[in-house]
């Protein structure tokens, strides 16, 4: 088994162990309904994690994705519902805006961490302008999609698989995906061979924007209403999800499938506590503990690899 395989297996293993734990504590969770309930809220988290992965892939970090998803949720619950044309235009512009931020960060050599922190104020402000108090409602088609009950396999599982498969094919198998990862791996080499780093960075940020929009829409479809703070925790969760899934902060080493699994693991960690009858006070702590645990195991594995 190579290191790549281990890197890939570890996220799956940690999710499986957690899942077995949940099933052991509550056998009734091992059903169509139970699984859907466990993983429903993981869909927007998974989409936000993929968005974060796009940014981490080009060696940056996005501290605004939580407020951006909140903003998109607010747009979906208000504008898209009331005046669809305007609503979708705003969402498209938001994606373009994200791409523009990426371009500006590269052209001016700005620290992404500060620019995105600053942008988080902008998205939060726009969200508050749109929806000063919690409310709104999802477009009917979105509600229908998110509450779909396909035969045999719950929608949440299918959605997670589709997200993982599509992004895997795009990032790991397409030539454009190779270029994007190359920005994180060796920017200068790409530049010397004639590629425009500005455009590639803009593309990575634009993709992050796209998945942020999808996360916001999915969230509204599930919760049926939005508010300006609905997804603030996604910023830290998405970073944790990418790392949990075997991604690295530098070098363009990311794994879309791992990121989706990481998001599922973090969501499951939160509900695991309620099965243990532990107070929900420890939810965030459990997510942190799992992150630390997985990183520790990863270190042990790579050490043994190094010694062998």
């Amino acid at each position: 088994m190579t290191r790549e395989h281990l890197r890939f297996m570890l996220p799956i293993l940690s999710l499986s162990i957690l899942l077995v734990g949940v099933f052991y504590l509550q056998p009734r969770a091992m059903s169509y309904f139970g699984l859907n309930l466990l993983f429903n809220l993981a869909i927007p988290v998974a989409l936000a994690t993929i968005a974060q992965m796009m940014i981490i892939m080009v060696n940056d970090i996005d501290l605004s994705i939580g407020t951006f998803v909140s903003f998109c949720a607010c747009v979906t619950a208000t504008l898209v519902q009331d005046t669809p044309l305007l609503g979708y235009t705003v969402l498209a512009l938001a994606i373009v805006g994200y791409a523009a931020i990426g371009a500006v960060i590269h052209i001016r050599g700005l620290p992404a961490i500060v620019v995105t922190l600053g942008m988080s104020f902008v998205w939060a402000g726009l969200a508050v302008l749109l929806l000063p108090s919690p409310g709104g409602s999802p477009p009917p088609w979105l509600r229908t999609l998110m509450t779909m009950k396909p035969p045999l396999v719950p929608f949440a599982i299918i959605a997670a698989c589709v997200i993982a498969a599509v992004t895997h094919l795009f990032i790991k198998r397409s030539s454009f995906g190779v270029l994007l990862r190359g920005v994180g791996g060796n920017e200068r080499a790409l530049e010397r061979s004639g590629w425009s780093i500005v455009w590639l960075k803009a593309a990575a940020y634009g993709l992050a924007g796209l998945f942020g929009v999808l996360a916001g829409m999915a969230l509204v479809g599930l919760t049926t209403s939005a508010d300006a703070n609905i997804a603030l925790r996604y910023t830290l969760l998405s970073i944790a999800g990418v790392i949990l899934g075997g991604g690295e902060f530098t070098g363009g080493r990311v794994s879309p499938i791992g990121a989706v699994i990481g998001a599922l693991t973090l969501t499951l960690a939160a509900s695991f506590l309620s099965f243990l009858r532990l107070s929900s006070d420890w939810q965030i702590g459990a997510q942190g503990a799992i992150l630390i645990l997985v990183l520790a195991v990863r270190l042990l594995v790579s050490r043994r690899e190094g010694a062998a």
């Binding site: 500006v104 001016r108 050599g109 700005l110 620290p111 500060v114 620019v115 922190l117 600053g118 942008m119 988080s120 104020f121 902008v122 998205w123 939060a124 402000g125 726009l126 969200a127 508050v128 302008l129 749109l130 000063p132």
Partner: peptide, 26 residues
Amino acid sequence: LGAGVRLILTGCIIVTVVAFASKRSH
């Protein structure tokens, strides 16, 4: 100004100042 506009302007000003500060260091 309302809370929303205030947040947006705060964000824009931070980004602008950072852009300006980085230019000098370059």
